[in-house]
């Protein structure tokens, strides 16, 4: 059992399987491949956002502004599309990534150069970004009629049996897996989380690496801004309100330690899928969607308890608050 707990991914996969089996026992159609793919597609945006959040949490930071970043970039891109329907979609997506990364860089600069705790910085930018959505839109919505057919249609196009949105999630996951396990940047994200002081002595620039983490989470949030707006075909101030906590929930359930240094791409993906499966299963077994919030809250608490059992392996840290903070 203890070994199972250490392998969070296997444990989560079993938990997801259990939910699937339980629901399918009563409603056989739930586990049909078509429905499972729908659930995967529904969860794609959450998976991408959670991966971005993981990069930040690994460095002992947190990004509370991701949902607001998403809403702001989503609104900008939707308004651009409404005003200039001729602009090609790939260009719009590039624009989203750049704007999102820019907003993330703003967070990162404050954390890196001014040494302000990330939770304070992103608490502030969360309200600023969301307020800006209102300022640029004047409180108005951008709805389906104003968006171009390509803008809405791109992510719904089916490629090799899967919607393009799902392919986005798969591609993001692959990129993250390569960066996290195969590049110096990815390894230094982990190193900083495990021991910032030792990281300094090994030649890692802690502040700059945190900055990169925020740029990554910002860029992902920006891209998801387009995906969210085109998926739900509405851009408004309220888009993804409160979603920052769902993102963090997916990370925590996926085994990412809020104390930094622990977490894997597979775990985060499974954490997001777990939430996605629960959300899709509730209406099927006829439980009111109002239960959703309490259930994900309980899932987070259970996950934290499990995380804590796996993490009790910290060595002694001498000179805890030296150069690295």
């Amino acid at each position: 059992m203890n070994r199972l707990l250490k392998h969070r991914e296997i444990f989560l996969a079993l938990a997801i399987l259990l939910v699937l089996v339980l629901v399918t026992a009563r409603f056989p159609r739930f586990a049909q491949p078509g429905n499972l793919l729908t659930i995967f597609n529904d969860t794609s945006i959450l998976m991408m956002l959670a991966l971005g959040q993981m990069a930040v949490i690994l460095t002992r930071s947190i990004d509370l502004s991701m949902a607001a970043n998403l809403a702001l970039t989503g609104m900008i891109v939707a308004m651009t599309n409404a005003a200039f329907p001729g602009v090609p979609i790939p260009l719009l997506m590039a624009m989203c990534v750049v704007i999102g990364a820019g907003l993330g860089a703003f967070n990162g600069i404050l954390v890196w150069k001014l040494n302000i705790p990330p939770i304070v910085v992103t608490l502030g930018t969360l309200t600023i970004f969301r307020g800006l959505v209102f300022v640029i839109s004047g409180g108005a919505w951008v709805n389906a009629a104003q968006m171009s057919a390509d803008f809405i249609g791109l992510q719904r196009a089916v490629f090799l049996g899967l919607p393009v949105l799902s392919w986005f999630a798969i591609a993001t996951a692959l990129v993250f897996w390569v960066v996290m396990t195969r590049t110096p940047l990815g390894r230094s994200l982990y190193a900083i989380g495990v021991n910032p002081t030792a990281s300094v002595y090994t030649g890692i620039n802690v502040g700059r690496t945190k900055f990169y983490a925020f740029v990554i989470s910002g860029a992902v949030a920006g891209l998801c801004g387009y995906l969210w707006v085109s998926r739900y075909v509405i851009a408004s101030v309220e888009v993804a309100g409160g979603y920052e906590l769902t993102i963090i929930a997916a990370c925590v359930i996926g085994g990412v330690s809020i104390a930094g240094g622990i977490g894997s791409v597979a775990g985060v993906l499974l954490g997001a899928i777990f939430l996605g499966v629960i959300n899709n299963a509730l209406p099927v077994i006829n439980i009111s969607p109002f239960w959703q919030m309490a259930i994900s809250g309980t899932a987070i608490l259970l996950a934290v308890v499990l995380n804590a059992r796996g993490e009790r392996r910290k060595g002694r840290i001498i000179l805890k608050k030296a150069e690295a903070t």
Binding site: I248, I258, T298, L301, V305
Partner: peptide
């Protein structure tokens, strides 16, 4: 249980408000 307060209270935040949603 020696858990980090930031995650615990993110969890109870969903739980408490979730119960309010279940009732109302």
């Amino acid at each position: 249980l020696k858990l980090p307060s930031i995650v615990v209270t993110i969890g109870t935040m969903s739980l408490f408000r979730g119960i309010a949603f279940i009732i109302l």
